[in-house]
């Protein structure tokens, strides 16, 4: 279940953003992606998730091992919390949602329509989705946005439990999650350089 990235080059809108991305994410390990806004963290995660093709390099991961959580939670307002989770569980071929509800303290809200939840509660629901998928490698984009201190601690605990079970996580975040064991990867130095402006052919892309 190791995610291995070799010499990856990624692009946003046809323009290279990051080059020479190298890292290995072993089972039980977490890697925190750091870098200023617009440095390409989201693009990197989307590329790893298979949503966009890389410009070059290799991504090696066992099939059906990754799960991606982006800025938007994919929550349907008119469905209840339990229905939202059950849907995603079934998409990933699973049934049980109780553990996920418990991990993010959503059980009391299970029958509320997701549209009536607060932003932080919605975020918790979005994160609970990760648990019901049963996938080992989590790709998380700013998971703690709009979470309060308590919910952030819940999230850190969930990540820790996930790592203890042999899972792994790649997390783009600006705040300190208190995951002492996590390594960090700063993407700022990997920024792709623009070719010389008089490069007539190269500019065409």
């Amino acid at each position: 279940m190791t995610l291995k990235v070799t010499d990856l080059c990624i692009a946003r809108g046809g323009i290279p953003v990051l080059t020479g991305v190298n890292f290995t994410l072993a089972p039980g390990a977490a890697l925190i992606l750091r870098g200023p806004n617009g440095s390409g963290k989201t693009t990197l995660l989307r590329t790893l998730a298979g949503l966009q093709p890389p410009l070059g390099g290799r991504i090696e991961a066992p099939p059906e091992s990754l799960v991606y959580a982006g800025h938007a939670d994919g929550i349907k307002q008119v469905l209840s919390v339990a229905e939202n989770l059950t849907f995603w569980a079934r998409v990933f071929g699973r049934r049980d949602i109780d553990a996920a509800l418990a991990a993010f303290e959503l059980a009391p809200l299970a029958d509320r329509a997701a549209g009536t939840l607060s932003a932080g509660q919605k975020r918790r629901l979005g994160l609970a989705r990760l648990l019901v998928t049963g996938r080992p490698v989590w790709l998380l984009d700013e998971p703690t946005v709009s979470l309060d201190a308590h919910a952030t601690a819940l999230f850190a605990a969930a990540v820790r439990a996930h790592l203890a079970e042999g899972g792994s996580a790649l997390i783009a975040t600006h705040i300190d999650l208190g995951l002492a064991e996590a390594a960090a990867l700063d993407v700022a130095p990997l920024r792709a350089r623009a070719p010389a402006p008089d490069d007539f052919d190269g500019v065409f892309a």
């Binding site: 989307r46 949503l51 059906e64 991606y68 959580a69 938007a72 349907k76 998409v91 071929g93 989705r129």
Partner: peptide, 15 residues
């Protein structure tokens, strides 16, 4: 589904 991000998540799901 596009607005609330479900489409991204569905695209990365096993379906």
């Amino acid at each position: 589904d596009w607005e609330d991000g479900s489409l991204d998540l569905l695209a990365t799901a096993p379906l």
